[in-house]
Design a protein around this nucleic acid. Structure first.
Lengths: 203, 203
DNA sequence: AGCTTAACTAACCAAGCGGTCAGGACTCAA
DNA sequence: TTGAGTCCTGACCGCTTGGTTAGTTAAGCT
């Protein structure tokens, strides 16, 4: 993974500790948000001293940034795989919705990390992270390709992409708040809504 | 407004100071979120001492809670008025979308207060605030009424309501992030999407 | 004039924050 | 045996946080 700033390679212990520290940070964020992930609490959960945490990471921000990037990378990878398998733009939309909702259903911690993390300016600036603009661009591009190929009717792809992402996020947060809410039927419904709203007539 | 805990009525000065303190808190939250609204900063902005702030409010939480409820009440009032004027369920959906987006376009500070405030558990618990469940219920009821009257086709009103609210929120946050993004056309598009997705065929 | 009350300030407090530092314990090559 | 390097601790630092307290000032009532 991310190498040290000087070219030196990582020890076995160091690698293990870093993973452990990151895992503890993930848990704490998942429980009560980023504000809950203090150095003291991370150290306590890892059964090491606060200074040990800072021995393995330069500062607290590096930990949070690492947590955010790793979470984001995992989701992005799943998304890329699902999208590459889609046969048509309407298929890609369905795959996009299903993949995101499935991820969010399976990784409730990840949702919190991404939502709060991407909203925080200082955590995102200076990194090569895919921020909100890049997120809706993916969807807008799918819509645009579908419009050119004739499967989608004419509409504002930008707004459509934003709305679709917002709907997905809303379903995710409803899942977190209400355990009885079934994600799969909801995803099906959303795909249905989206297709009805965007497909060219007679498609 | 909210009276004192003991039956005593408010002084002119006290009322004015409370309003001033709340206004300062609103500004600070609008600028950099709730974490930015510390007692010291509120006091500094109001040109009074920290102790003076706590002279008028029992504690910091009371301030934040008051800010949130007032913001929420204002929006709820606008919403109720718009909905009561709607002639049909599809009209009501359109009114709902337009009112919310217009409010968010006109009160960027309010958006931040509501989003972050309603997400915070400790700020909402113990109050009679309309939380997320109550929010989608309004929309779900409109859909349900429209289904009974035949204007809407059959679908999961719960999921539809959640998706619609999510789409509205997403448009709002896009507006905040991108000043060039025009809210009115976006609202029009969203109403169009929603109607296409939900209206009964031939309607 | 004397007393009360509203409205406020300056100083202070304990707790928690991110972060530093000197040094201890251990391993291992020279 | 020694010295370097790894891994970690406990004590400490400066700072900010929400909140308290004692005391001051001005206005208003009797």
């Amino acid at each position: 993974m991310t190498p040290t700033r000087d070219g030196r390679k990582r020890t076995f212990v160091e690698e293990a500790r870093r993973r452990q520290i990151l895992a503890c940070a993930v848990d704490l964020i998942a429980e009560h948000g980023y504000a809950n992930a203090t150095l003291a609490r991370i150290a306590e959960r890892a059964h090491i001293s606060k200074a040990a945490v800072l021995y393995h990471f330069d500062n607290k921000e590096e930990i949070l940034r690492q947590v955010l990037t790793e979470t984001l990378d995992e989701l992005t990878a799943q998304l890329a795989e699902a999208l590459s398998a889609a046969a048509s733009p309407p298929d890609a939309i369905a795959a996009y919705v299903h993949t995101l909702i499935a991820y969010m259903a399976g990784h409730p911690a990840g949702v919190r990390i991404l939502v709060e993390g991407l909203a925080s300016t200082e955590l995102v600036t200076g990194t090569n992270m895919r921020t909100q603009p890049e997120r809706w661009r993916i969807v807008a591009d799918i819509f645009a390709r579908g419009q050119q190929s004739g499967s989608f009717r004419d509409f504002d792809t930008h707004t459509a992409a934003i709305c679709l992402n917002g709907a997905i996020d809303a379903i995710a947060s409803e899942m977190l708040a209400n355990p009885d809410y079934a994600p799969l039927p909801a995803a099906e419904s959303l795909v249905d809504f989206t297709h009805r709203a965007t497909l060219a007539t007679g498609y």
